[in-house]
């Protein structure tokens, strides 16, 4: 069974870590042959909370090994971006979907939503917005 590794949304880093996120992921994928489950909302969250450029991370990840991508909503709270899965997908995350797919479009994308469900029309609109940003046909 193929295994895909999904990097998390982290609010803080280990103080004396030896590898940054891109180096860590590349090394572990090279060592294991696993594929990458890239959560584009986590890329946004980590860049936003570290004060880093999300495109710089995308440019250093092995995008050809992305098995599929997760997209999710979140919210700004207390000076941090939280990957809540219970809020709408913000425009910055949709923009990153576009940036990812312009570099290397993954075989599929999945919208994660864990609660505080909006009306079906709002969910369909989010799915269509993800499809439009990625260049895939509209879902609905």
């Amino acid at each position: 069974m193929p295994i895909a590794l999904e990097p998390i949304a982290a609010l803080f880093d280990w103080p004396d870590d030896e590898l940054d996120e891109a180096d860590f992921l590349t090394e572990i994928l090279d060592a294991t042959g696993a594929t990458l489950l890239l959560d584009i909302a986590n890329v946004h969250a980590n860049a936003r909370n570290r004060g880093a450029d999300p495109l710089a991370l995308l440019d250093r990840l092995p995008l050809g090994r992305v098995a599929y991508a997760h997209v999710a909503g979140g919210a700004e709270q207390g000076g941090f971006y939280h990957d809540t899965h219970t809020d709408p997908v913000p425009p910055a995350v949709l923009d990153l979907v576009g940036e990812l797919c312009a570099r290397h479009r993954p075989p599929a994308l999945l919208l994660e939503r864990d609660g505080r469900w909006p009306p079906a029309s709002a969910l369909r609109a989010e799915l269509d917005a993800i499809a439009a940003a990625s260049g895939y046909p509209a879902v609905t």
Partner: peptide, 15 residues
């Protein structure tokens, strides 16, 4: 613990 950024760790704790 020493070395960790207080604000971000507290944000994670609250989350």
């Amino acid at each position: 613990p020493p070395g960790f950024a207080p604000g971000p760790v507290d944000a994670a704790r609250r989350a």
